[in-house]
């Protein structure tokens, strides 16, 4: 199986744009519809920005999985931050610890087909998102 993995290091705000480009390219590679593409890349943008702003940076990896019409892109974003104390609370619409609107995390969850979040003070926060082509 070919290795379809792309990684983007997230250090500063401008890296979020690179993460978006990588997300766009991998979604284009699986022939995703424009709506799926836009939703996924927007979700990636939110998560990558969170990693830069609140997670002391990290890395986001994109991988193409599956075959045929059920192909999907899986993004895994790992940061080095202090972790999220209350994940359920952080996923509540409108809740924010920063200066944002609190729509980022909860919104990203709604934009993708699968959304998982693991967080601890020791390991930082890892967000996994999957999006199918259609």
């Amino acid at each position: 199986m070919p290795n379809d993995t792309v990684s983007v290091t997230l250090r500063r705000a401008s890296d979020v744009a690179y993460a978006r480009q990588a997300a766009m390219q991998t979604m284009a590679a699986i022939g995703a519809s424009s709506i799926k593409k836009t939703k996924f890349v927007t979700a990636v943008s939110e998560i990558a920005r969170n990693a830069v702003l609140y997670g002391r940076g990290g890395v986001i990896t994109f991988e193409i999985v599956g075959s045929g019409p059920r192909r999907s892109v899986v993004a895994e974003c790992m940061d080095r931050g202090p972790g999220i104390a209350d994940v359920a609370l952080a996923l509540t619409e409108g809740y924010s610890t920063g200066s944002g609107l609190g729509l980022g995390l909860s919104g990203a969850k709604r934009l993708v087909d699968r959304f998982e979040i693991a967080s601890s003070a020791l390991t930082g926060t890892t967000v996994t998102m999957e999006c199918f082509a259609r």
Binding site: T38, L103, L111
Partner: peptide
């Protein structure tokens, strides 16, 4: 605004 963007913003609650 493109349709895909409009749908995404609405989904985001924006």
């Amino acid at each position: 605004m493109r349709p895909a963007v409009a749908m995404t913003l609405v989904e985001l609650g924006m």
